[in-house]
Design a protein around this nucleic acid. Sequence first.
DNA 1: TAAACATATGAATAATTGTTCATATGTTCA
DNA 2: TGAACATATGAACAATTATTCATATGTTTA
Lengths: 124, 124
Amino acid sequence: MVPKIQPVERCDCEVIHEDTVKRVQEKMPLEENLYDLAELFKVFGDTTRIKILWALDEAEMCVCDIAVLLKMTQSAISHQLRLLKQADLVKSRREGKIVYYSLEDEHVRQIFDQGLIHISEEKE
Amino acid sequence: MVPKIQPVERCDCEVIHEDTVKRVQEKMPLEENLYDLAELFKVFGDTTRIKILWALDEAEMCVCDIAVLLKMTQSAISHQLRLLKQADLVKSRREGKIVYYSLEDEHVRQIFDQGLIHISEEKE
DNA sequence: TAAACATATGAATAATTGTTCATATGTTCA
DNA sequence: TGAACATATGAACAATTATTCATATGTTTA
């Protein structure tokens, strides 16, 4: 197999649109920021985590409550809560044996709500 | 191995929090809606697609322009554009050989912006 | 201190998914 | 019509990831 020198495929229309491409290229945010943004949405992009976030928006809850609510194992919930916490979407406080989780802040709800709006309009 | 009868682990604290759990359970949205919401965010949860969305927010662009801009193959971009279109996040119009893509509506930008706000506050 | 409870976590597995490669479809123009 | 261009797509592969299982950590209480 012939090794590929140029991973970027040029095309005629890129010449036509040279100005646009160049302009957009210059405004391009740092790779890192776009990466972080994708990572954030990735956390929302799982049914289990969405359910957890929804539940925590209704009430502060402990791990086993969530497990019962979602009919899933304590372990699965705990793993997901860890991801949610790492993404700063939820916080926790310990009260004896029990660890209570709740939403970190208003953003979570706002991102959530925007998503719901899109979903509902999509179905029209 | 003993077969598992009860996938749901009960616990003492669930008894303590019975009211809360019951109340939240009753307000629980349809499984389908939460699933759709997760699917929506999943689309945002990939660096390539985030970059595409960002680019299309700057300007309407054709497939090969995006490929050049992101230094990726035309095929990879085309596959991702299909997903974005299926999720109603982008739309396309053909002009001869060239297919131009653009953002579907304002929601996309709003969801995007909410995410950026969260990211930026996270770093403080 | 031992037992019971609540939670956390490492390893393994199964499922999902992004990219590549090859190729098909659709369009223009000579 | 045929060649070149722009895009779309199926199949395969590699990488990621959600859940399970087993077990560890941390807390209370008898």
